[in-house]
Nucleic acid binder design. Structure first.
Lengths: 164, 164
DNA sequence: TCACCGTGTTTGCAATTGCAAGCAGCGGGA
DNA sequence: TCCCGCTGCTTGCAATTGCAAACACGGTGA
């Protein structure tokens, strides 16, 4: 019972490897792991760490994500689609703007969580769709944001270019 | 071994945890790991396995992918790169929170653009990513957000909102 | 027959993970 | 003052990872 999903990922790796028509040792070399260890992984005898998994994915030239999903390390459909990552990757923002956005996002998550916990006691059916009946952002609210937005406190203008 | 990026992921976890305003032990319990181990992870003394990483992500209610990217375990190859899309897809937010985030994002984009036009004359060389850290969000700023965050589900809000 | 090269597998073992228990500091109440 | 609860940190220690070396088996050529 020790390693429930490891077997499946081992099989998956072996499948991928065989489809690529490379030997265990070749993949081991490409991935930078030892052949015996790879053998054990493929047979589900070992639970590789994330680092090893990542290297194997590289060796197989497949997506790390695919492997993690197989390993059960990422919820297969991870719908959050990751606002944080998107913010971090967005080159159209300054570093400070990113920080603010992330903080706001986190605070939202926190509030939502607090609410969820609260409602979980009552086990109340929760409606997501609310009648949207109000302007989301009044002027003064955005005004309050400005000092945090582009600011460039010490001329930190951050221009990594990524034309997109 | 240097474990180059472990430190950064530890910091990232600690940031996320503190922003969520939960204690190390709370997160440890939520993630199903021991407190001392989490402490060591946060300080970069240990390299958590993928499984632990995944559990921590769950405990933090953040995307596993974000954590893996931070850990350098995913090549960050195809990030959503679209903040709006990510926000829209995030089921952990209320509809109102999404609206607010999107509006803030838009306003940031505008400000940044204005700045870039201004600074394009100077073409300042990039300052490496080290914006002098400073507490990200003052209290009153977050307080200003609250009315827009989770509130107003279905018209009637004041169920138990702590009214001082 | 032997030697050689390839495949995947088994076998110890150092290094590391991850945990239970305990330690030190801080703030509040009796 | 003591006690309690909370915060994070340190300390052994069992369990596990991941590797080097050696193993078993098969195919090839001399």
């Amino acid at each position: 019972m020790a390693l429930p999903k490891v077997g499946s990922i081992g099989e998956y790796i072996r499948e991928q490897r065989q489809q690529a028509k490379i030997s265990l040792r070749q993949l081991a070399a490409a991935a930078g792991v030892s052949n015996p260890y790879l053998s054990q992984i493929e047979r589900g005898l070992r639970k590789p760490s994330a680092e090893i998994l990542n290297q194997i994915a590289k060796g197989l030239r497949i997506s790390s994500q695919a492997l993690y999903v197989q390993a059960g390390l990422i919820e297969d459909r991870e719908p959050p689609s990751d606002v944080i990552t998107a913010i971090r990757a967005d080159s159209h923002l300054t570093e400070r703007q990113r920080q603010v956005l992330i903080d706001i996002y986190d605070s939202f998550r926190k509030e939502k969580r607090a609410e969820d916990e609260q409602t979980s006691q009552n086990a109340r059916p929760q409606r997501d769709s609310e009648p949207d009946d109000e302007q989301p952002l009044p002027e003064d609210f955005l005004a309050a944001l400005e000092p945090y937005a582009a600011t460039s406190r010490n001329g930190n203008v951050n221009q990594e270019t990524k034309e997109g």
